[in-house]
Amino acid sequence: MKLFVRRTGGRIGLWGGLLAAALAAFAAGWLVPVRAPAGCKLNELTAAPDFSPFSPAAPVVAASDAGTPAAPSLPEKWVCLTFDDGPSKTTPEVLAALDAAGVHGTFFVVATGYNEKYLPLLTQAAAAGHQIALHSASHEYSDIYRSSAAYWKDITLLKERIAPYVDAENIRYLRFPGGSTNTVSRRYGGKGLMPQLKTEVEQRGWQWVDWNVCAEDAVGGHPSADTIYRNVVRETGEQTHCVVLMHDSATTRTTAEALPDIIRWYTDNGYTFLTVAETLPLG
């Protein structure tokens, strides 16, 4: 897989190549959940991206197009550790593992009502230097992907719910539930919805973020810490610019257990740990 850079109005956008391994029941259409299962393997959530508007990433230190400010100089090898679906009862363990290693992560958070009592942990995470980004208030595909208006209503609600704990008004990074190329959204909002939402995010001067390494920590069967570690190493392969998708939910406790080994492996292989905002600063 390759990491892709997108230029939109002088901004650089991050595109993660997504995995495409289908589960038979979904391919056959036997299971149609309202809330999409977490993970990286479901075909509807990891459809093959349309690369036509993208080009393979050039070295980030290269000069930009004429008339566009040069991109910031970044290390030759870097990795962003990103966590979806928190905060939760697992968050303190994730934060402890990151803080022990002196590494900052990026948290794409939810505020579903079920995790309301954990939202104060966002203050702790932000104070420690971790990036807080937007994911969804409800994470219910049937709700958020009905229309553009429904999606932005969900984002507005998410910002309202996390505002007591972080500077929500100035958060401009988000991750679409299911990723920017999911096809499950077509069931509710039609084929043109995701392209429309991506355009609207960019028009706001915001940044949507995918991934190109998946820990597969939220798939069925509750994978062990060792399995999660091996998944990350395998998915990274020879890539030098990595955005790793992990989860920070109540059901992914082994992710925190795997983090020390994951961090050690990236360190031993010469990667610098960055937040998403550090790799893609917005003007």
Rank of each mutant, 00 (worst) to 15 (best):
L3P: 00
F4G: 08
V5W: 13
G10Q: 10
R11L: 15
I12F: 14
L14V: 12
L14S: 13
L18C: 07
A21Q: 12
L31F: 05
V34Q: 05
E44V: 14
E44K: 08
P53M: 07
F54D: 04
P56L: 13
P59I: 11
A62M: 13
A62G: 11
P69W: 08
P69V: 13
L74Q: 14
E76P: 02
W78M: 11
W78I: 12
V79S: 00
V79F: 03
C80Y: 01
D85F: 02
P87A: 06
T91F: 01
T91L: 01
A96G: 09
D99W: 00
A100N: 09
V103M: 06
F107V: 04
F108S: 01
F108G: 02
T112K: 04
G113D: 06
Y114A: 12
P120G: 11
L121P: 06
H130I: 10
A133W: 03
L134F: 05
A137M: 07
Y141P: 00
S147Q: 08
A150F: 10
K153S: 14
T156K: 15
T156A: 15
T156W: 04
L157C: 08
K159I: 09
P164A: 13
Y165C: 11
I171D: 00
P177I: 03
P177L: 04
T183M: 09
S185H: 07
R186H: 13
R187T: 13
G190S: 10
K191M: 06
G192P: 04
P195V: 09
L197W: 11
L197K: 08
K198A: 06
Q207F: 05
V209R: 03
V209W: 04
D210M: 10
C214W: 03
C214R: 02
P223Y: 05
I228C: 04
N231K: 09
R234N: 13
R234Y: 10
T240D: 14
V244M: 03
H247Y: 00
D248Q: 01
T251R: 10
T251M: 08
T251K: 09
T254H: 15
A256V: 12
A256G: 15
P260E: 11
R264G: 05
W265G: 00
Y266D: 00
T272C: 14
F273A: 07
V276K: 01
T279F: 05
